[in-house]
């Protein structure tokens, strides 16, 4: 059985990816986690300048999901290169570095600084963080997303993955524009805008008022969007949103995702990738499938 998948030029040993913001830079978890089951780790989003992040409380749990408002807390690109990057090459997985900018200039700076680093296997452009207090996310605009990807495409030969928000009227339209602009893959979905209110204090639970919703609650909505996009594009889709076990992962792979991303489950179970991978393998074995794309082909939708 061959579990390897290609995402642009990036070859992953298996299709399990740990999503940005849920796995640090990877290195922090090396004593607890078996990286041999992880195809790639997407780093916490790096910005041009260090960021302290949003006012706490930053996390709220519902019956079936988690609302977070971290606000891209990170040490900034220079400190990342100096202090975090050297340790990453020692882990037996691929490193996709997530980039967040507040202007096209910042995104360009980030790509220029990181393009020459060989420990960076690919970039994921975070065009969809819901916690920055902005009126509109970049990936809510076809034009902004497309222009940005076109500009960055000229600066790097490394694999460019673009992470989209599900909060749009027509995600296929945005995804197609990003594909035409030169992206190697789409990653979806980022979290959904959300709010929780404490009825005793009559205040929002989160310090930043609103947050991004993730976890099991968002799975059917995310799966729908992944299925729509994966079947309209030529480039691969890294699909996820609420994956908790191997059955969820299989649904995304059947729907057409080339690889799956695990997010909130990593917070509860840092070794979730291992269980999910072995579940996927057992299912493929039972169904006499030889490669990951056989899953997609077998879908009777």
């Amino acid at each position: 059985m061959n579990l390897a998948v290609n995402i642009g030029k990036l070859k992953l040993k298996n299709p399990i990816i740990c999503a940005s913001g849920t796995f640090g830079f990877g290195d922090e978890l090396k004593r607890l986690v078996d990286f041999s089951s992880i195809g790639a780790v997407v780093s916490k989003t790096i910005t041009a300048e260090p960021r302290e992040g949003n006012i706490p409380p930053r996390i709220y749990e519902t019956d079936c999901g988690v609302i977070n408002s971290i606000g891209l807390a990170n040490p900034g690109v220079d400190s990342f290169i100096k202090e975090k990057l050297p340790a990453l090459g020692r882990l037996k997985t691929n490193h996709i570095i997530s980039l967040g900018g507040f202007s096209e200039k910042e995104y360009k700076q980030l790509v220029e600084k990181l393009d020459k680093q060989d420990k960076v296997d690919a970039f994921e452009l975070n065009l969809s963080c819901p916690n920055l207090g902005k009126e509109k996310l970049i990936s809510q605009s076809q034009k902004l997303s497309s222009d940005l990807v076109k500009g960055l495409r000229k600066l790097t030969k490394k694999t460019l993955i673009v992470k989209l928000t599900p909060e749009v009227t027509d995600i296929v339209k945005i995804a197609k524009a990003v594909e035409r602009a030169g992206a190697d893959a789409i990653s979806m979905v980022n979290t959904y805008f959300s709010l929780a209110i404490d009825i005793e204090t009559k205040k929002p639970y989160l310090g930043n008022v609103t947050g991004g919703y993730s976890g099991p609650a968002i799975k059917p909505m995310s799966l729908y969007r992944v299925w729509k996009v994966a079947n309209s594009l030529r480039i691969p889709v890294v699909g996820g949103g609420g994956i908790t076990d191997y059955k969820d992962a299989l649904e995304f792979l059947l729907a057409g995702a080339a690889a799956v991303s695990l997010g909130t489950i990593n917070l509860t179970d840092p070794n979730a990738a291992k269980d999910i991978l072995s579940g996927v393998k057992a299912y493929m074995d039972k169904n006499k499938m030889k490669k990951i794309s056989d899953l997609r082909r077998s879908f009777n939708g």
Partner: peptide, 22 residues
């Protein structure tokens, strides 16, 4: 005490404000 995400230092959810920042 603060409501936590991962508990392992990776998600940055359980911060409190100190004189040296979060």
């Amino acid at each position: 005490e603060q409501f936590m995400g991962c508990g392992l230092g990776v998600c940055c959810a359980c911060v409190i404000l100190t004189k040296a920042g979060y």
